[in-house]
Computed example of a mutant assay.
Amino acid sequence: MDMEKIYLVSDLPGYTPQIGRLLSMMNYARHTTLEAVKGLTMNDLDYLLDANSNSIGGLLLHIAAIEFAYQVGTFEKRELTEEELSIWGPALHLGEQGRLHIKGHDLSYYITRMNEVRTRTYELFQTVDDDWLTPEVQFWYNKQANYYFMWFHVFEDEINHRGQIRIIRKRIES
Rank of each mutant, 00 (worst) to 15 (best):
residue 170 K to W: 05
residue 112 T to A: 14
residue 43 N to K: 14
residue 95 G to T: 07
residue 1 M to I: 06
residue 29 A to W: 10
residue 159 I to R: 10
residue 40 L to G: 00
residue 130 D to W: 06
residue 7 Y to C: 04
residue 3 M to W: 13
residue 103 K to F: 15
residue 7 Y to I: 05
residue 49 L to F: 13
residue 83 E to F: 04
residue 19 I to E: 01
residue 114 M to L: 12
residue 127 T to W: 05
residue 26 M to A: 01
residue 154 V to I: 11
residue 71 Q to K: 03
residue 117 V to G: 04
residue 172 I to E: 00
residue 74 T to Q: 08
residue 137 V to R: 13
residue 59 L to A: 01
residue 94 L to G: 10
residue 140 W to H: 02
residue 126 Q to M: 05
residue 39 G to T: 14
residue 72 V to G: 02
residue 81 T to C: 03
residue 132 W to I: 12
residue 135 P to H: 06
residue 27 N to W: 02
residue 147 Y to E: 04
residue 42 M to T: 15
residue 65 A to G: 07
residue 56 I to C: 00
residue 162 R to Q: 08
residue 36 A to P: 05
residue 68 F to N: 10
residue 99 R to F: 15
residue 123 E to V: 07
residue 38 K to M: 01
residue 31 H to E: 04
residue 131 D to C: 11
residue 112 T to Y: 15
residue 150 M to A: 11
residue 141 Y to E: 11
residue 61 L to Q: 11
residue 171 R to C: 09
residue 20 G to W: 14
residue 151 W to E: 06
residue 59 L to Y: 06
residue 57 G to R: 11
residue 165 I to F: 09
residue 17 P to E: 02
residue 55 S to D: 02
residue 67 E to W: 08
residue 85 L to M: 15
residue 80 L to I: 07
residue 101 H to N: 15
residue 94 L to R: 14
residue 58 G to L: 08
residue 60 L to N: 02
residue 97 Q to S: 15
residue 35 E to P: 05
residue 47 Y to R: 04
residue 162 R to V: 08
residue 115 N to T: 09
residue 73 G to A: 04
residue 32 T to P: 03
